[in-house]
Amino acid sequence: MAAKSNLKNMALSLTLVCLVCSAVLGCVYAVTSGPIKDAEIAKTNASIARVLPAFEGQPSAETVEVDGNMFNYYRVPGAGYAVISTVGGFGGPLSLMVGIGEDGIICNTVVLSHSETPGLGAKCQTEASFIDQFKGWDPAAKRLAVTKDGGDVDAITASTITSRAYSAAIANAYNVYLKLRENE
């Protein structure tokens, strides 16, 4: 059974275990860091491909500050911008990627992460009639707010707060677009 404890062997065994474990972890990290990066890039590219028309090459990740908040976005030459926009939804953060063409027309949106109620707010990910209304939306002509608030967005039944958050996220992304055009 277990060896008798004294200060020397206690310190020795703890140091030894920590050394061996960090060595193992270092090796595993070295091996997996490449695939982890690839997986992240593949995920982002898949999202960008969904929100913008076909493009070639690797979009570059950039950051911009609008009204004191930082936004991450991807500049896709020839296609437009893919802006990541996060707002507070019903159950927690609701994170979208919004594709906006060079002309300022919204191309498509995709939910990156959410914590909305299953079967209610979570429908913002699946309900086609809700998601598809934003395809080809011109924020300059139509207001990004639910009809209840005097806008033009048809909310998901019984999920006004989620729909409101979704609209706000797109509106924020559009402001990012305006800022970027102004800078160019």
Partner: peptide, 9 residues
């Protein structure tokens, strides 16, 4: 985790 209290995450 990112949190949203108030407006921005």
């Amino acid at each position: 985790k990112e949190f949203t209290f108030g407006d921005a995450a």
